[in-house]
């Protein structure tokens, strides 16, 4: 009875030992492979960053060289920031922001810009009519103003186009995007 028990114990111990050895071997190999991949990846990223930096440096140096050449020829380069030119109005900024954040699409942006221009035109027309008559508002609104004020003709209400409230391009763009 003693011999089988000892044999069983030795067998179980050997089994556990072998199992552990195989598992450790696998883990160490997997780790070394992961390290190898990591090394290659880090080297690639380092080279990529180095290339980006060099590109930036090259562009800066090219710009400096161009400035030097222009100065030598008597032409002084000046940027748009130096001139303080603001060729973008607020509406364009807002529409760019909304497109960038995916609130509206390009088509919706074009649509709302068209409507916005139309609204501005109609309000300016009605305002000029109001100014021309000294005390009363115009009795007959123009064709374009009637189109906005008459709910039967316009299938979709344009809340941002009312004459009483100031126009808000952002609200208009967002209300268009919700439709």
């Amino acid at each position: 009875m003693m011999i089988p028990t000892v044999a069983l114990g030795i067998g179980i111990l050997a089994f556990l030992f072998l199992y552990q050895v195989i598992s450790r071997n696998k883990v160490s190999k997997m780790n070394s492979l992961a390290m190898q991949k990591q090394n290659a990846q880090s080297k690639y990223e380092f080279m990529l960053n180095h290339k980006r930096e060099l590109k930036k440096e090259l562009e800066e140096k090219k710009r400096k060289l161009a400035t030097l050449r222009n100065n030598q020829q008597g032409i002084k380069t000046i940027s748009s920031d130096d001139l303080e030119i603001k060729d973008i109005d607020d509406n364009e900024k807002v529409s760019r922001y909304l497109i960038q954040h995916g609130k509206i699409t390009m088509e919706q942006n074009i649509k709302v810009l068209k409507k916005w221009k139309y609204c501005r035109w109609t309000t300016s027309a009605s305002a000029s009519q109001w100014d021309s008559s000294t005390s009363k508002p115009p009795n007959k609104p123009s064709r374009s103003t009637r189109f906005i004020q008459n709910p039967r003709r316009s299938t979709r209400p344009l809340p941002y186009c009312s004459n009483k409230e100031p126009h808000r391009f952002l609200d208009a763009a967002l209300s268009i995007s919700e439709f």
């Binding site: 190898q36 991949k37 290659a40 990846q41 080297k43 690639y44 080279m47 990529l48 180095h50 290339k51």
Partner: peptide
């Protein structure tokens, strides 16, 4: 992966 990365790294170099 290492082969691909090595090729890319060589091109970058």
């Amino acid at each position: 992966a290492v082969t691909q990365l090595t090729q890319k790294t060589q091109a970058l170099e």
